[in-house]
Write a protein that binds this DNA or RNA. Structure first.
Lengths: 194, 194
DNA sequence: TATAAATTAATGAACGTTCATTCTTTTTTA
DNA sequence: TAAAAAAGAATGAACGTTCATTAATTTATA
């Protein structure tokens, strides 16, 4: 294996270690010493790959967010009805969050704490462009409510984070039936006519 | 002023100082030394009022949450229609969050990070009982969807946190029109028939 | 192609700070 | 004056980061 490959692997090992530690105790639970230990590396080595702890966390955010976006828009096809595209994206997102719990929990932590630079956060938002485009189209077609995309996001996407949180705490079982009910609630909140 | 009164005041000064510091840099930004300085008190004095930093944060959570609940259920009256009660609670909550930004931001941070004991969190949830009771009644009357209260909360209440976040970052203006649209989205997501 | 030189990767120890907490002393209260 | 409350100094531990050094790899030389 080439040196470049090995470097890439080590970088991802560091990101993974950070992800895991942040989830078990917030950002302050992921000390550089612990990250190094989990990744089987010297603390100093982290600084060969990342400028600082802040840089490490920012890069982790973009890495996880891009993975989330890739999953969300898998099989994205503009040639079908708005509702069908939205449903596909919604269930793609929920599948990702159910399968990759650590990643999902990390992303929802990022939304509500100042652990991520505003600039990096904006960069991460760009990954969601296809969804915003879909909403523009849906409004034009009179299918989606003519309200701010922030509202659309708040009521149709953001609630998933809460539900995942509940499920991870063992307070709520997100089986197929509940997921369908959730999607229905999401859709009802943003669609123009029921 | 009696000693008891003074003690109560100092306790609240400590809670307030913590609240302010947590909002400007997360829980790790609220070191005991800083809390002491903001509250004009020696670090050691904090330990006369709180067992530990964790205890301080837990008590702050309950203190803020109870204030939130008090505002939410102000003028609570079971003799009117379910939708009207819900609307009243919803706007009470949004008013609180708009007026008391620090308190609101703190509560939404608590929802997504492991900074609060699970036990304390459960205790805080009890403050929301009137809302859960209302939903039980609404379901009986066929007005509210027959779905888990977690779903009802996720789609009708939780989104407010996202919107407040956006507003605080200057990305979204929550004027009267937008608030009405938001309430409509909340209601559409949980009501049985449009 | 074998060897020397140069470059890169990685290390563990140590830095100065800051952390939550405690100990000892001083001040206030009754 | 005895007791309670508060203060400030001091604690060891942990923090993010940097340092001088070594190991590994690549490049250049003969």
């Amino acid at each position: 294996m080439g040196q470049l490959q090995k470097s890439k692997i080590k970088r991802i090992a560091l990101l993974s270690a950070t992800l895991s530690l942040v989830n078990n105790g917030g950002i302050q639970g992921a000390s550089m010493a612990k990250v190094a230990k989990v990744a089987n590396v010297s603390p100093a080595t982290i600084y060969l790959y990342f400028e600082s702890k802040q840089d490490l966390v920012n890069q982790l955010y973009l890495y996880v967010k891009s993975g989330f976006a890739e999953a969300a828009f898998k099989g994205y096809n503009q040639d079908i009805a708005v509702k069908d595209i939205f449903k596909r994206i919604w269930f793609n997102m929920s599948s990702f969050k159910l399968e990759f719990k650590e990643e999902a929990s990390f992303l929802s932590q990022c939304d509500n704490t100042p652990m991520i630079d505003e600039k990096t956060r904006q960069e991460g938002l760009l990954y969601m462009t296809p969804l915003f485009d879909l909403w523009v189209r849906g409004k034009k077609e009179g299918i989606i409510k003519d309200i701010s995309p922030y509202l659309l996001y708040a009521f149709s996407i953001y609630p998933m984070a809460f539900l995942m949180n509940m499920q991870n705490r063992g307070l709520c079982q997100l089986d197929k039936k509940v997921l369908e009910e959730s999607f229905q609630a999401a859709w009802d909140s943003i669609c123009e006519i029921k």
